[in-house]
Design a protein around this nucleic acid. Structure first.
Length: 573
RNA sequence: GGCCCCAUCGUCUAGUCAGGUCCAGGACACCAGGUUUUCAUCCUGGUAACGCGGGUUCGAAUCCCGCUGGGGUCACCA
């Protein structure tokens, strides 16, 4: 399909070998944004999703499912590609009739093009075994010269090669690389030229009959009408190979844009292994020598601990982390979701990591906070940075905290509940939907992630008779000086029963009225009360704090606190 | 190691293509102060960068060269 200059089609083509990595999410987001903008500007923009499952040994269906869901959760939807139902919304489809979108279902197409290449002498079968090639590679490395395939398959006369091919001799197919430099006209990096010495005749079809990534990606992009290829910089050096295939097949060369990669703050690659590393370190520090979790035997646990390269499945890592109270670094989109990040905050931060809108707000500051609509209306290659960027969780956290704080109470409550349903069911058991709505204004400004919300109201999860009073806080609020705090608390204790309804507003009002009546500052009453019902000096406003535990619990806790304070007072005397 | 890409506050970046308006602007973090019944939010102010060395030029963050540093890539993975 020739590229219509008025049509912009971008694609994201993950290989389903695991979860969707945060770097992949950024690539997808920007591909989506570019197509969205093209659409808005009348260029028939479409974003396409393709599953690159040509590695039979590593691809899995569950991985595909997870990736599609992660994208949908982020709000990155595709016009063409696997069809899924997400929250009653259908994403994907095959309107242009260029599917299927799974490479494993397109083998005939690849073979057709490979046959053409062989026919035109742009490609040839090679019969060496992997072992033979490995030996040659080793030789080259030992001799400290760069390894290149020596084209020894071409020593076999063409006629004989074709005969062996037809006879079904085990073989791979290699592309005959042209003997000329190839220039990539990159939209972000500019022209990049690579000489012919840098390439050998790479494999385009494996022994198992599956095409390699290089062949499949080129054929699919061409057949699916992909006009703009936006991908990570790790592919830059592959691009001349792809251009060589395009030229051999008579395809148009799409527009390329290679974006910088993202790294950990320490400069290392953001890798799934980071989670494992963190868990191992924590286990070693805790000096555990037996498996503390179900489903993991002591022997496997020991093996894992000893072997740096051995990794535990995600659910076991999470269980370990919970047990040891360590925070695993978020790497995959699912990790961020579990940790209570909002997709809008994640998208905003991800887009800004490498792209700058170069626009000013009314107050003169740079535009940094924006939504998907803004991204889809303004994203372009000219704002892309060229250098690698470090992933700053602290700044992301700030974006997320702001996104949460900006949510109307009803939305916050609803999303908090949806999150908790999947990741913290106990929270839903303790709080009704109404409870969460009532808490919303207090929790919103006090948590940076949805997961943090629980900490803010942690006092509600403690039994009344299990509250541990912070001695320092108790002394400061109730006993200091003339023990005025204790006195006030005792008087207010009886007031509590009269508050009706027992709602945040009514409670706040009751405290205020009480202070006026007794002519004392708010602090004299509020702090003792706070210590009494939460055990410590810090909590959300008293209205929500008392309302969520209820009248009876409030009175019970005050009584316990008073008793404790009086005991400590008499002990002193 | 070969080849390729990159380089402004701790971090993400604006400014670089069209050299002077930049003793370098914004954001996050940090520090100080203010508002507040605690905490958080919020508000005000502050600290902080052109990797190094050569050129070109009246003048360089901006152009050229070298160095250093970081990254990518060298698979029958994608």
């Amino acid at each position: 399909m020739p590229i219509d200059p008025n049509t912009v089609i971008t694609r994201f083509a993950p290989s389903p070998t695991g979860h969707l990595h945060i770097g992949g999410a950024r690539t997808a987001l920007l591909c989506w944004a570019y197509a969205r903008r093209a659409a808005a500007e009348g260029h028939n923009g479409r974003f396409l999703l393709r599953i690159e499952d040509t590695d039979q040994t590593r691809s899995s269906e569950s991985s595909t499912k997870g990736i599609l869901e992660d994208l949908a959760w982020l709000g990155i939807d595709w016009a063409d590609g696997p069809e899924i139902d997400y929250n009653g919304r259908t994403i994907g489809g095959d309107d242009r009739n260029v599917g299927p979108y799974y490479q494993s279902q397109r083998l005939d197409l690849y073979n057709e093009h490979i046959a053409k290449l062989i026919e035109a002498d742009h490609a040839y079968p090679a019969f060496e075994t992997p072992e033979e090639l490995e030996a040659k590679r080793k030789e080259a490395i030992d001799a400290k010269v760069g390894y290149k395939y020596d084209r020894s398959a071409l020593d076999i006369p063409r006629e004989e090669r074709m005969k062996r091919l037809e006879a079904g001799d085990p073989h791979v197919v290699r592309l005959k690389m042209p003997d000329a430099p190839i220039t990539v006209h990159d939209q972000i990096l500019g022209d990049v030229t690579v000489g012919p010495d840098e390439f050998d005749d790479f494999i385009i079809r494996k022994r198992d009959g599956f095409p390699t990534y290089h062949l499949a990606v080129v054929v699919d992009d061409a057949l699916m009408g992909v006009s703009h290829v936006l991908r990570g910089q790790e592919h830059l050096i592959n691009t001349p190979r792809h251009i060589a295939i395009q030229q051999a097949l008579g395809f148009e060369v799409p527009t390329y844009a290679h974006m910088p990669l993202i790294f950990n703050p320490d400069g290392s690659k953001m890798s799934k292994r980071d989670k494992d590393k963190t868990a191992k370190k924590a286990v070693k520090e805790a000096k555990l020598d037996a498996s503390p979790i179900d489903g993991l035997s002591d022997t496997d646990f020991a093996k894992w601990l000893k072997d740096k390269t051995r990794q535990l499945p995600s659910d076991q890592l999470i269980a370990l982390a919970r047990l040891l109270d360590v925070h695993l670094p978020e790497i995959d989109v699912e990790d961020f979701r579990r940790a209570g990040y909002l997709p809008e905050a994640l998208n905003n931060y991800l887009a800004l990591l490498g792209w700058n809108p170069k626009a000013k707000n009314e107050d003169g500051t740079d535009v940094e906070r924006f939504d998907m609509d803004y991204l889809g209306a303004h994203y372009g290659f000219s704002g892309m940075g060229k250098g690698q960027a470090k992933f700053d969780r602290v700044k992301l956290l700030s974006f997320n905290a702001d996104a949460i704080a900006e949510l109307p109470d009803e939305h916050f409550a609803a999303r908090w509940r949806v999150w908790a349903t999947s990741y913290d069911p106990a929270l839903c058991e303790r709080f009704s939907a109404e409870d969460m709505l009532m808490l919303a204004p207090a929790v919103k400004t006090r948590c940076k992630t949805l997961a943090d919300g629980r900490d803010v109201v942690g006092f509600a999860f403690v039994e009344d008779d299990a509250i541990e009073f912070d001695g320092k806080a108790l002394h400061k609020a109730l006993l200091k000086g003339e023990a005025k705090g204790l006195e006030m608390l005792k008087v207010f204790r009886d007031e509590v029963a009269t508050i009706d309804p027992f709602t945040p507003d009514a409670i706040e009002q009751a405290v205020k009225d009480f202070c006026e009546k007794h002519e004392v500052g708010m602090g004299k009453v509020a702090q003792p009360l706070r210590v009494a019902v939460t055990g410590g000096p810090v909590s959300p406003p008293l209205g929500q704090t008392l309302a969520i535990i209820g009248k009876d619990a409030a009175v019970a806790r005050i009584d316990r606190c008073v008793a404790e304070a009086e005991q400590s007072l008499s002990a002193k005397e």
